[in-house]
Design a protein around this nucleic acid. Structure first.
Lengths: 191, 191
DNA sequence: GTCTATAGTATGATAGAC
DNA sequence: GTCTATCATACTATAGAC
């Protein structure tokens, strides 16, 4: 295979570095900080090169969302067939790197049509996978999937994890211990 | 009383109009759209006047947060002594005007210290009030506040309502009906 | 309290050399 | 594929007239 190398090194091609640099800036300083100049500097290239790979900055943002989404979906598919899908669901939605980016994209999506469309498509694919995993887990334990629809349970777990993460990010921790142990007790019933 | 008028009219003084215009722009187009020029135009004044009332744009943002927070806390205090505090808690956190602004402030808070500090203080005051209301409601119905800490219950209700609202804003509705009716059934047990 | 005018800087995007 | 150079535009913030 001629081009079979996949270096995990920090630098691959310029395009990938630009995408990664944009994600980093969005996480650390918000989407408004991800300007063509700053993104280029972070990736170690000149500003004009951004427009060689991406027609507009919005196209760059969409690509950041897509590549992150693909990686996330891949991880989720693998993880949710594991021993403890519900705990895995909780853990994955507690990753502050992901929830931080997600907040930025939610804010961006509120006023940019292309990003809204892309984010919606991604969110629904994620929900489908998560719901499938919860369905399997609940049936295996003989739980009532009529009274407690798996899609509702998976939303409850994912959204609670993400909310706690978002609050942590701004320094709000009041009540977190209580909610965490309540969830932990509930999740333990499934294991 | 010399200055006792409180006109609900769209125009009061310039300062208030600037704060309201900023909130509107943040809701409709995101915080990045709330520039001194656009805010001034929306309020019907000239750009330089923004800096007469607010030393920097961040000071304006903080003031938007404060005035919104004060109004919200006032409404919440009044509402939570009502007949059905838990339903009220749900309804107040389902207001898309508030949750939209909240998303913007969360994103802003992720990279602006002053706003993070202000948002944290507000979030904790809100949580205190909500928790107090849930405590009263649970005790009145003889529910176990040891096993189900009121602060955790109030967080669960508020965050679920807000999450559904945030998703609605970007067009995601998958699973909402199921989660809503699950919550409705739970809330009904308290009434 | 509200304005005009402007300084100084950063932005998205393009043209064209190599 | 990557660069230099630049245009047109927008931004925050200040100075100073009225």
């Amino acid at each position: 295979m001629p081009s079979g190398r996949k270096p995990a090194a920090p630098d691959t091609n310029a395009r990938d570095r630009l995408i990664e640099a944009t994600a980093k800036l969005m996480r650390d300083e918000g989407y408004a900080a991800a300007t063509s100049r700053r993104v280029a500097a972070e990736a170690g290239v000149k500003q004009a090169l951004v427009y060689y790979y991406f027609p507009t900055m919005d196209d760059l943002f969409v690509e950041v969302l897509r590549s992150g989404a693909d990686a996330s979906l891949e991880r989720m598919r693998a993880a949710l067939t594991a021993d403890d899908p519900l705990q895995t669901l909780w853990d994955m939605n507690s990753d502050s790197r992901l929830t931080g980016l997600n907040t930025e994209f939610m804010a961006l999506a509120n006023h940019r049509k292309i990003i809204r469309t892309e984010l919606r498509a991604y969110a629904e694919r994620v929900r489908d996978i998560e719901t499938a995993a919860v369905t399997v887990a609940m049936r295996a334990r003989g739980l009532d999937t009529e009274k407690y629809p798996p899609v509702a349970i998976s939303m409850l777990i994912a959204q609670t994890a993400r909310s706690l993460c978002n609050e942590d990010a701004v320094g709000v921790t009041l009540g977190h211990a209580e909610l965490r142990s309540l969830i932990a007790a509930r999740l333990a019933e499934f294991s």
